[in-house]
Deep mutational scan, measured.
Amino acid sequence: AEKTGIVNVSSSLNVREGASTSSKVIGSLSGNTKVTIVGEEGAFYKIEYKGSHSYVAKEYIKDIKDE
């Protein structure tokens, strides 16, 4: 089941290729951006990003809701 969340950062949140802080950064999301969460892996959520799937750190996503 998909969930949505809100990016909870003051500046921007790195979007990564994989579920690791050493993964390549492929983009960023600004605070209060709504994201669609399709899964989770460790400390990361797998999200829909620009037509494919990428990862963001869970600690920076708030207001998780089931869609």
Rank of each mutant, 00 (worst) to 15 (best):
K65D: 11
G27H: 02
K24G: 05
E2R: 15
N8G: 08
I61E: 01
T4P: 05
I26S: 04
V15P: 01
K65W: 10
N14C: 15
V7M: 03
S28C: 14
V9E: 06
S23G: 05
K58R: 07
V56A: 04
S11A: 11
D66S: 12
S52M: 13
G5M: 06
G39H: 03
S52K: 13
N8P: 04
S12M: 12
G51I: 02
G42I: 02
E48A: 10
S54V: 14
Y55A: 00
G39A: 07
E59C: 12
K3H: 08
G51M: 05
V38K: 05
K62I: 15
T33A: 09
K58G: 02
G5W: 07
G42Y: 05
K65S: 13
K3S: 06
S30W: 11
S11K: 11
S23N: 04
D63I: 15
S28E: 10
N8M: 13
D63Y: 12
K24H: 06
E41W: 07
D66F: 14
G51N: 07
A57S: 10
A43V: 08
Y55W: 12
V38D: 01
L13E: 03
D63Q: 13
S12A: 11
N14S: 14
E40W: 06
L13M: 06
E2D: 09
E48N: 10
E41L: 08
Y49A: 00
V7G: 03
T21E: 14
G39W: 03
G27A: 05
S20H: 08
V38P: 01
I26V: 12
E67N: 13
A57P: 14
S54T: 05
K62L: 11
Y55T: 00
N32D: 08
Y45V: 03
S28F: 13
E48C: 15
V35Q: 00
K46N: 02
I37C: 03
F44S: 03
V15S: 01
S23I: 02
S54L: 07
G42H: 04
R16Y: 15
I47V: 05
I26F: 03
S12D: 07
I47Y: 00
I47K: 00
F44T: 02
K65H: 11
Y60I: 03
V56G: 01
Y45H: 02
E17C: 09
F44N: 02
I47T: 01
E40H: 05
S11V: 13
Y49Q: 01
G27S: 02
E17Q: 09
F44P: 00
E17M: 09
S20D: 09
N32K: 08
E2N: 15
R16W: 15
T21D: 13
Y55F: 11
L13N: 03
G5Q: 03
A57V: 07
E41N: 07
S12C: 15
N8V: 14
V38T: 06
E48F: 13
V7E: 02
I47A: 01
G39E: 04
S10I: 12
G18S: 13
T21W: 14
V25M: 05
Y49I: 03
V9K: 10
D66N: 12
K46H: 04
N14Q: 14
E41H: 07
G27K: 01
T4N: 07
K58H: 02
E2K: 15
S52C: 09
L13A: 14
E2H: 15
Y55E: 00
E48I: 15
K58A: 05
I6S: 05
D66E: 13
I37N: 00
S30F: 11
N32R: 09
D66T: 13
Y45N: 00
S52T: 13
F44C: 04
K34I: 14
I47R: 00
A43G: 11
V35D: 00
L13W: 03
V9N: 07
K24S: 07
G39Y: 03
I64R: 05
N32I: 05
E48G: 04
A19Y: 04
K62V: 14
K62N: 10
K62C: 11
A43M: 11
K24D: 06
S20Y: 08
S52H: 10
V9Q: 07
I26Q: 04
G5T: 03
G51L: 05
S30N: 10
G18N: 09
V9T: 13
A19S: 07
V38H: 05
V25R: 04
S54C: 14
G51T: 05
E41I: 09
F44K: 01
T33W: 06
G31W: 11
T33G: 04
I26H: 03
Y55G: 00
G5I: 05
S52L: 11
G51H: 05
K58I: 05
I64C: 09
S22D: 14
S12R: 14
S20K: 06
A43K: 09
E41K: 07
K62D: 14
H53E: 07
S22Y: 09
G39S: 06
Y55Q: 00
A43D: 15
K24T: 07
A43H: 08
S52E: 08
T4G: 05
Y45Q: 01
I26Y: 02
S30D: 11
I61V: 08
V38L: 12
H53Q: 08
I64Y: 09
K24E: 06
K62R: 12
S20C: 08
N14F: 12
G51K: 05
N8Q: 10
S23A: 13
E67S: 13
G39Q: 03
L29W: 02
S12F: 14
N14K: 13
K34R: 13
T4S: 09
S30P: 15
S20V: 04
A19I: 05
E40V: 07
N14W: 12
K3E: 03
K3G: 05
E59N: 08
D66G: 10
E41M: 08
K46I: 15
G27I: 03
S10T: 12
T36F: 13
K50R: 10
I26T: 05
V25F: 04
